[in-house]
Design a protein around this nucleic acid. Structure first.
Lengths: 343, 343
DNA sequence: TTGTAAGCGTTATCAA
DNA sequence: TTGATAACGCTTACAA
């Protein structure tokens, strides 16, 4: 049978729809006995309230939405976990929604706001270059997590939490230089990328310059596609290509730890030892970087702390009406087995 | 200003709401000029239709929902990717929703059905032991992906696509036995688990029996918590514990490849070589298993094919009204560097 | 080709 | 403590 409505329940209980609604929503000022009776009929008939009708009528909800572009990115997994926990602790409903690669996250958010009326939104992933005008339309507290810099004007509307990708990347490359490396290959995303990949590349350039090492374009290896720029296969493929090219280098710095894993495997298969023949470095500080053999030198982003900050800032804005905040976290250079001093 | 409605647009254009609705929904029988004018006003004012109102009124949508319990499980990532692609190809809207660990997936689905009226649902993850009664309430085509066996009666209502976890696990353990191993440690989920972990353990028991090897309870290592039963840290921790216990074994069979990674790392740190000192085997056939050093012996589940089957079965049910189907896929034993014959 | 008006299932307002 | 009733923003007969 085509699912019950609140009216059917009202009829079955011999009360009005208002009373049923009150029972359903735990409103005060309703007779305990009436309420119990209603709730029993509700569960006997497995009645489920229609959320569309609720959302349509309700002026506000108690939800916080998390929109993730690239939900398969392992970097976001601990973030999502922490966010879920925090949001629940604060007695909000946690709304997780994936954003397709070809969708505009703000458009998705705008629809969501009309539909579900969340109290706040967290954006994870994506590029995030939106006009302030569009951001203003959102009109509820927003925090962007771990997407690198956003432009200054937008920053007054949206909070953001991230590491300084240029600086952290600089840290890594500077370390490699100090270890005596001068021919440092880097695996970045596509040439068109304007996001974290571009920033990490900028850090690379700055560090080389600061160490008096010329930037050699042939050592910058761009991904041909944007889709798989961050996976193991990509690192594997490009590493094999790099080795075959005969280009000389002593260390490979990969845009992410997953790519670094592919790099290590390719080296292994070509009979090269890490770090004896080539050093390898990654970025992010994923679990796999510390469980791989060899463990992989990386820059750890403090994901859990960052996720906590995202939540705190959002709730500050929701509950205390605090203005947008920007928190930049310090990454941690983790020197591990995959890199060594060049003698 | 508090967001426009279709009425405002109608007023601005000097037409009725019906006409606006027609323009918005690409209905036939509307003057091209009127339509263009309306669409211009719509975009000038950045009008966004309210989905709650739409869903409330509409008798059906064109969406297919994918509900994932444990969205961070790397096993589901390629599945989700393929599903998204297939669903889009068929011109359906792809709805991805996470289900919290403590939520009942059917309850979530029931709400969703009322709210969004999808044409079909895919369930990934979770345990899936629901009464047929409850499943019947859903009343739209459902496919359960990769969750192992569901009980027979439910099977008439829901389709399912999976590998035979008992048989595949048997395959792995039988292989290990044939390689001369008799002391095979296994890392499974918690004692209470009734899902894939229990089935893989059953396959282990059967294979040992078939090979005339007694099942030794001390070689069965249960996870203390259910939450992290499948991650690297868990494998690492339990492996260290197992080594410290002094229990004798020649191979460790982990419930998943991620756990196997943790196992390998722990062995490495204790100065043990894989496979010379201990063999290691995993399950699932994740990318990392083929990129790890050593590459990890595993049973590959044909995820992409399985995801395609999920989609095909669902669309068969939606468009051709075909009854529930069950497809059991064959896993593939991948013998790799992490295991060896015991001499 | 366009408009009028009746719902969709709920919550909010007000009165009883 | 309860109930009538008017919205919420949209789609869809049906009428013009």
């Amino acid at each position: 049978m085509g699912s019950m409505t609140i009216k059917d329940i009202a009829k079955l209980c011999g009360v009005s729809v208002t009373t049923v609604s009150r029972a359903l929503n735990n409103y005060p000022g309703i007779n305990q006995a009436t309420k119990e009776k209603i709730m029993q009929v509700v569960s006997e008939n497995q009645f489920i309230p229609n959320n569309s009708a609720r959302n349509l009528k309700r002026l506000e909800s108690n939800a916080v939405a998390v929109l993730v572009k690239g939900i398969s990115n392992p970097f976001f997994q601990p973030m999502i976990g922490v966010l879920e926990k925090r949001i629940h602790e604060r007695k909000y409903t946690f709304l997780l929604q994936g954003v397709n690669g070809d969708e505009d996250e703000i458009d998705v958010a705008l629809e969501l706001v009309l539909e579900k009326k969340p109290k706040g939104i967290v954006f994870l992933g994506g590029y995030f270059c939106h006009t302030q005008e569009k951001l203003k339309l959102l009109d509820i507290p927003c925090v962007i997590g771990a997407v690198g810099d956003i432009d200054e004007k937008s920053g007054r509307i949206c909070s953001c939490v991230h590491v300084d990708d240029v600086r952290e990347s600089y840290k890594m490359v500077d370390y490699l230089c100090r270890m005596g490396h001068t021919r440092i290959a880097i695996l970045v995303a596509s040439r068109e990328d304007m996001s974290i990949s571009a920033q990490r590349l900028e850090g690379y350039r700055q560090a080389l310059r600061a160490n008096g090492i010329p930037v050699r374009e042939e050592l910058i290896c761009y991904s041909t596609t944007d889709a798989d720029a961050y996976n193991m296969e990509r690192g594997y493929r490009d590493m094999k290509r790099l080795l075959a090219s005969g280009i000389d280098f002593s260390v490979v710095y990969a845009i992410s730890d997953t790519v670094a894993v592919g790099v290590c495997r390719a080296l292994k298969e070509e009979g090269k030892r890490v770090p004896e023949d080539y050093s390898v470095a990654g970025f992010d500080g994923l679990d796999i970087a510390s469980y791989y053999i060899p463990t992989i030198t990386t820059v750890r982003q403090p994901v859990e702390e960052m996720a906590c900050a995202v939540a705190d800032i959002l709730f500050d804005a929701i509950e205390e009406h605090r203005p947008a905040q920007h928190r930049i976290f310090e990454g941690e250079l983790l020197v591990r087995e995959s890199s060594r001093r060049l003698v």
